[in-house]
Design a protein around this nucleic acid. Structure first.
Length: 494
RNA sequence: GGCCCCAUCGUAUAGCGGCCUAGUACGCUGCCCUCUCACGGCGGUAACACCGGUUCGAAUCCGGUUGGGGUCACCA
């Protein structure tokens, strides 16, 4: 027999993002936040931001601040919750203890919660003795403990945890991304919701707060899929005592995988949201890539704006397969978004990544260089963090340029440099076209060199590198004096 | 082990019974452009896990097998 229950429908969408503030923000967690946010935006619903800080040992204020930082960076905002307030405050579970105590009391009175004294070892031993798999979990053994038995336990100095009585029926629900899922009777057992010290567990406070806050759609990670029947069982209990009136819809988002076949580990640098920001992902690029982890806009486009995502996003379209975090693809998408930036915007975003060369705010001279150099590199970068190696030479004094080993030409380049110095020394119209014209004339046409042989040493002289922004444009930015000084400096070294 | 989820090129995905000799993107790769590197353009590489059904017709529906993952805490 299948249990029947009411699900939320028709009403305005209310979704939530409810992280525990432990550690630095994980991209999988942020992806979950993004999907909830996008779904709220798409449906015109509300996103509630709640802090699940019921684990004092692991929770930290620093972690909470990082969460805010990360969400703010990506532009994920919420309509109700910690930081902005709302009718269901407080939004930190550590401040909601009194609310929980009242509900626990009512649940106890109705017999939906019962006292459990058994230790893990006792449960396992009993499973073994009864021929059950020791890993099978709790056996609902204490459902009908007599007062005498309870007193005996207390006489031993034991204090009871509280378990929820789950229905002895199968339980199914219609997952928004996976369709109908059924758990057979007996595959989920009575579980602890309150510790002996009276502090409720996540398994209790999460559904309780969802109910109290009127959450209609629970979009969360696949790791919570197996606990859904227990949550639904708790919802039944909450409905029975009038705390909830409907059961929300559930949608379990696919895992974000790392290399191999395991979840992207917290220890993997790729898991850390800020690692990507530090390397120069822009928010448009990272959001786009994160959205692609389990979702797609259309069959032939994977670069899109956040607005386009919001306009099209529906949980029902989320793919149930686990998604691998592919840094190469992410960087490529980011590069596309960098190219999409307005030049001034791009310039402004570059500055923090050039801190070793450019002061904040930049001096007028630095600003002028950035203005001219920005367009030269905007299409050459996948990450803003590429900027220092590409642009550093423009901010470095002529006599402090260091030459990369792989960029150093052979002694035969001396002829090239001599010719270039002679030619440029006489050039007065210091423009891109003139520079190219006279240098080609003297080196390529005159000396009969291949362009790459002719210009390679010049590139090294002015940038110190084998790879640089376009040569003539760079010379224009540096100016005649600086260009000649650099050419002469390399000439002397050879 | 019980239960649950998942299964299309190396990766992410499109596909929701005929439009599929399976599309797109990243990656890799050939050519073009070219002062380097990029960008851009034109090609190439490469996949429906397997076995049964249902059907006139299956990547698409059903069952099984195999493989992978998750979960069975007085963590969240």
């Amino acid at each position: 027999m299948s249990a029947t229950f009411t699900t939320a429908s028709g009403a305005d969408v209310r979704v939530r993002f409810c992280p525990s503030p432990t550690g630095t923000p994980h991209v999988g967690l942020i992806r979950t936040a993004l999907f909830n946010w996008a779904y709220a935006k798409h449906t015109g619903g509300k996103l509630i931001f709640r802090i699940e800080d019921t684990d004092a040992a692991r929770d930290s204020e620093e972690s909470y601040e990082q969460l805010l930082d990360g969400l703010d960076w990506l532009g994920i905002t919420w309509d109700e919750g910690e930081g902005v307030g709302g009718p269901n405050a407080p939004y930190r579970q550590s401040q909601r203890h009194d609310i929980y105590v009242g509900i626990i009391e009512r649940l106890k009175q109705t017999g939906l919660l019962y006292e459990s004294f058994a230790t893990g070892e006792e449960i396992e031993a009993r499973n073994l003795a009864n021929g059950r798999d020791p890993k099978q979990g709790y056996d609902n053994f204490e459902r009908e403990l007599s007062d005498e038995q309870k007193a005996a336990y207390r006489a031993e100095g034991r204090e009871p945890a509280l378990r929820l009585r789950v229905p002895d029926t199968e339980l199914s629900f219609d997952d928004l991304v996976r369709g109908e899922i059924t758990f057979p009777a007996g595959s989920f057992t009575d579980f602890v919701v309150v510790r002996p010290n009276g502090i409720p567990l996540y398994t209790f406070v999460n559904p309780v707060d969802d109910a109290l806050m009127g959450i209609t759609h629970v979009l969360r990670g696949e790791d919570l899929l197996s606990s859904t029947p227990r949550q639904i069982a708790l919802y039944h209990a909450l409905i029975e005592i009038g705390v909830a009136d409907v059961i929300p819809r559930f949608g379990h988002l696919p895992y974000v995988m790392g290399d191999g076949n395991k979840k992207l580990s917290k220890r993997d640098p790729s898991a850390n949201l800020f690692h990507h920001r530090d390397r120069g992902f822009i928010r448009e690029g990272l959001v786009n890539y994160l959205a692609l982890l389990g979702w797609s806009l259309t069959h032939d486009r994977d670069v899109f704006s956040i607005d386009e995502m919001v306009a099209a996003f529906d949980v029902a379209d989320v793919n149930p397969n686990p998604a691998r975090f592919d840094l190469k693809k992410a960087e490529s998408i980011n590069g596309d978004h960098i190219r999409l930036l307005d030049p001034e915007d791009f310039e402004a975003r570059l500055i923090p990544y050039l801190s070793e060369y450019v002061s904040t705010p930049p001096t007028p001279a630095q600003k002028a260089i950035l203005r001219e150099a920005g367009p030269l590199v905007q299409e050459r970068m996948q990450l803003l963090g590429d900027a220092p190696s590409l642009l550093g030479f423009l901010f470095t004094p002529d006599d402090e340029i260091t030459f990369d080993d792989d960029a150093l030409p052979g002694a035969d380049a001396a002829i090239v440099l001599d010719a270039a110095i002679a030619t440029l020394g006489q050039l007065n119209a210091w423009s891109h076209d003139e520079l190219e014209r006279v240098l080609r004339e003297s080196l390529v046409d005159g000396a009969g060199l291949k362009p790459r042989v002719a210009f390679g040493p010049l590139r090294t002289a002015i940038s110190g590198k084998r790879i640089s922004p376009p040569l003539f444009e760079s010379m224009v930015i540096l100016g005649k004096e600086s260009t000649l000084a650099r050419l002469e400096r390399l000439r002397k070294i050879l």
